[in-house]
Simulated scan of single mutants.
Amino acid sequence: MSTLTAPARTRRPRTPVPAPVRRARRRGSALALLAWATGILFFLPLAWMVLTSFHSEPDAATNPPSLAAPLTLDAYRTFFSAGGADGPWPPLINSMTAALCSTLLVLLLALPAAYALSLRPVRKWRDVMFFFLSTKMLPLVAGLLPVYLFASNAGLLDNIWLLVVLYTAMNLPIAVWMLQSFLAEIPVSVIEAAQIDGARLPTVLRRVIAPIAGPGMAATALICFIFSWNELLFALVLTGVRAETAPVFLTSFITSQGLFLAKVSAASLAISLPVLVAGFAAQDKLVQGLSLGAVK
């Protein structure tokens, strides 16, 4: 009996990859490695702060540092028991009040301004935009003395609502600049259709523009919240006991007796946690918002 043999498979010759494609792949791999290295480089200080916060003061002060030191919660107990019976909660509440209220005011004021500059432009609107942005270039210390004298004469020292007004004025230029680029991507035909249906400007802003520009508004709100939460100079000079914010409370851990690394690391992590949580929760909106105004 004859056996049937399967025909031998013929291998197709591989198509050579063009040199430009190989160079593009190598360039992409190099950029990916660079991005990972940069990300790890920026993450290492945060990871080191977290690890130090769980060490005792003698272990945190060793040089070189001890990675295998036993972990403890003493630094966090010190942080939450500092500042008297109430602990750090009054400064945290003050920071949250100032950051949230100023961010809401910034959005309420920046949205109509950005609408006028993007969808209903005025003459020399670019000059107006650069004027808004130029106010961010003023050093904060240059305006500290006039603001302090005004607050002192008006009886507004150690008042959290003064910080709300200041943070609103400080973040409004960057918010108008960002929202203008976001609103410029909205088709004018959508707004004209709403106006034909009888919608007035407040209705157009609330029901048409705000939902479409939601990611951009979320990105702007998050950036303004971070700027307000981290502000230290005005809060340090203009507040005392009642309106003390979290960054000012953090400076109380640096005493004349020395710098206690474990306590400072625990306090820094606890104070930074609201910003980290807000950024993690809104990361998808932040990416959408930051990329919305960059694509034409």
Rank of each mutant, 00 (worst) to 15 (best):
V164A: 11
I254K: 12
S152N: 14
P146M: 08
G216Y: 01
Q180F: 15
Q180G: 13
L250F: 01
A262V: 10
W229L: 06
V241R: 00
V164I: 14
N159Q: 05
S189L: 08
A218D: 02
A151Y: 09
S152H: 14
G216I: 07
S256P: 09
Q195T: 15
D158T: 06
L179W: 10
P139F: 02
A210D: 02
V188I: 07
L261V: 10
Q180C: 08
R206C: 03
L157S: 05
A210I: 04
E231V: 05
T251P: 03
A235R: 01
I191Q: 14
F150A: 10
L201Y: 03
G155V: 07
F249V: 03
V190S: 14
G240E: 05
G240Q: 13
V248S: 05
T239I: 03
L157E: 05
V208Y: 00
W161R: 00
A246R: 12
R200P: 00
G258W: 13
A221P: 10
A213D: 11
A235Y: 10
A210K: 05
F182W: 01
A184N: 09
I191L: 15
P247D: 15
I196T: 06
A221W: 05
G155N: 04
T220F: 10
N153K: 15
V164L: 13
A154E: 11
L183Y: 02
I174H: 04
A235N: 12
Y167K: 06
T239G: 08
A213I: 08
S256V: 12
G143M: 11
V208N: 04
Q257P: 08
T220A: 11
L163Q: 01
E231F: 02
L232W: 05
I196C: 02
T255V: 07
A246C: 09
